[in-house]
Nucleic acid binder design. Structure first.
Lengths: 211, 211
DNA sequence: GTCTATATTTCGATAGAC
DNA sequence: GTCTATCGAAATATAGAC
């Protein structure tokens, strides 16, 4: 009788190259989300991943590359929301989609923390997340502005509604609520607060031609 | 003929103890505002102040103490706004005061940058600015909520207006606009955007007993 | 009050063995 | 693919001369 031999302790058959990388990205997301990019060390990510610092840097040649991977993953996770949809939401329905997004964010503190901290750090042009932050806001504005204009053409949103202001303010409310929610998750109902805001917008800018 | 003697190069008569300290606080404010607390080194503050690192640490025993001094100074500069006033603004007038505050902030990128970055870093309980951030939001909420309730009692704000939601959303708009403004100062008219938001609030929650 | 010098960590990144 | 070892730079903070 023989045991299935472990040919050389060396050959751990886990093929875990991919796994290690994925775990590192998850860990980095969590740490960047709480301590920010500058406040997180590569060593800390490596330790929690279960790798040495060099082991981690094998997958990501630099800290900035690690950040890039984190951002890419984040975009992939909820990127379907804005860009992936073949049919962009129209008119007021776009605000319902945003409410759904906010509700979903309420269950993912890591993603919210990541965004709030990187957005704050990333206003500086020299920050490695700067381009990403700019792109995020630009695409958000474009998407929402188009939805509003579509609503105007279809007649459900008043033609004289100030589109750019609606867009900027709506985005501001989302960001500002996230900030307050991070400070007091128990006391701030992001989705409900945001929905109340959209109700105010509808009350003000809906077309009145009822029955 | 003789030159006015410089008695010992040692005796610079500047008495600049106070001056150095004040300049250090100003420099630290500027650096914290752009790179955040974690992203700013004591050495960098010292260098721009015109002191050695040790010279700076003579005035502030630690980096956290320097931050405390910065926050104290910031509170002093615009602290009159919320707490210093003997007569707190009432009803909708409170929102006019906020518009004025936002307009004033539009001329002080340093203070806005400082706040946005510290607010983001400071959601973490372990961050040296955490208590300050909490206090800031708490006093803001208290001040605005009281103003709104006063407006309800006086009859200019609808009695069924959701006070807490109005307060949280208004603060969120201010914070969110600051974030966008830091990213694109030229493209974002914070005060105008905020005023448009307050107009929407008034349109929705003002008492209608005209004439 | 400010300096030079230094102690002590920690950082991001590289070299090379296995 | 992961490790140990190490580098050079930068961080916070302290000691002590002037």
């Amino acid at each position: 009788m023989s045991f299935p031999p472990r040919y050389r302790a060396k050959s751990r058959v886990d093929l875990s190259g991919e796994e290690s990388r994925a775990k590192a990205v998850a860990v980095a997301t969590e740490l960047f989300a709480t301590a920010g990019f500058k406040g997180t060390s590569v060593a800390a990510v490596a330790a929690r991943t279960g790798l040495s610092q060099s082991g981690l840097l094998h997958h990501f040649p630099s800290k900035a590359a690690l950040l890039a991977a984190v951002l890419e993953e984040r975009d992939r996770e909820d990127g379907d929301f804005l860009t992936g949809t073949t049919t962009p939401p129209l008119g007021w329905a776009a605000f319902d989609s945003l409410t759904a997004l906010v509700a979903r964010n309420s269950t993912r503190p890591h993603l919210v923390g990541l965004f709030v901290r990187l957005a704050a750090e990333g206003t500086e042009p020299s920050h490695p997340a700067h381009a990403w932050v700019q792109q995020h806001y630009a695409s958000m504005r474009t998407w929402l502005a188009e939805a509003v204009r579509t609503g105007q053409k279809s007649g459900e949103i008043a033609a004289d509604a100030p589109v750019e202001t609606l867009v900027r303010t709506t985005i501001a409310v989302i960001d500002g609520l996230q900030q307050q929610w991070l400070l007091q998750p128990e006391d701030v109902a992001m989705a409900a607060e945001f929905e109340a805001f959209t109700d105010t917008l509808r009350a003000r800018w809906s077309t009145v031609d009822a029955g």
